[in-house]
Simulated scan of single mutants.
Amino acid sequence: MNISILFANILTGLAFLAHTIGGDIEINSIQPAININNWAEKQQIWTMARCGWHWISFDLLFASIALALVNFTNFFDNKKTILQLLLCYFFGYAIVWLLLILISNSFPDNFLKLGQWMLLLTISGLIYYGTKKQNA
């Protein structure tokens, strides 16, 4: 068992749960009221945002499953390649997150309040470290 990959797996699994449960509660808080003039247009945009939100939930679930398969089974012939792909995946998400914060309107402590980039970099760092120890 690779401890670094195990910690990345745990963080990814926890992120999936937080994103799916807590995130859906948050996104429901911005659902448009049915009594506004352009409700259908706002509802369509909100529904698209909610679907996009849970697209990420699905990504986190499958990344967590892949990490568990790498760490606990011989499902993949080349575990190191899977880990390298997941490393690029989480690192890429972190970069996109940071870029979007940079190009968006600023507010106090925006890099800390929207600190998911730190989690994504931590996961990618753990996978990077774990990949160095992987025998495949």
Rank of each mutant, 00 (worst) to 15 (best):
I25K: 09
S124V: 03
K42Y: 06
L86D: 03
I123S: 07
Q84E: 05
V96D: 03
K133G: 03
S64R: 04
K132Q: 12
I10R: 00
S64M: 13
S57I: 01
K79R: 05
M118F: 11
A63V: 04
T122P: 08
L121P: 11
K79D: 13
L121S: 15
T122H: 07
I101M: 13
G22F: 10
F76H: 00
K133Q: 15
W39E: 12
F16C: 10
A18C: 08
S124A: 05
L87M: 14
K42G: 01
P108H: 00
S104K: 00
Y129M: 13
L100E: 13
Q43G: 03
I45W: 05
M118E: 11
V70G: 00
Y89A: 05
A136T: 12
V70I: 12
I82Y: 07
E41C: 01
K132G: 15
I25C: 09
T20Q: 09
Q44N: 11
G92I: 01
D24S: 15
G52E: 09
L102K: 11
A68D: 01
L120Y: 15
I10V: 15
L99I: 14
L86E: 03
G125Q: 06
K132Y: 09
T73K: 09
S57D: 01
I3N: 12
I34M: 11
I27P: 09
A40Y: 11
G52A: 12
L86A: 04
I21V: 15
F90I: 03
L100T: 13
D77W: 02
T20N: 02
A66M: 12
N135K: 09
I34H: 10
F16P: 06
L99D: 02
L102V: 14
I36H: 07
Q31C: 10
V70N: 04
I30W: 04
K42D: 02
H54P: 04
I103D: 08
K42H: 08
L11Y: 09
L114P: 02
D109C: 00
A66N: 06
I101A: 10
S104P: 00
F7E: 04
S104T: 10
S124D: 02
N105P: 10
F62C: 03
I65L: 13
D77T: 12
L83I: 08
N105M: 07
L83P: 15
L14K: 02
F62V: 08
A66I: 02
C51G: 04
T47N: 06
N2L: 03
I95W: 01
K113I: 08
I27N: 13
I21K: 07
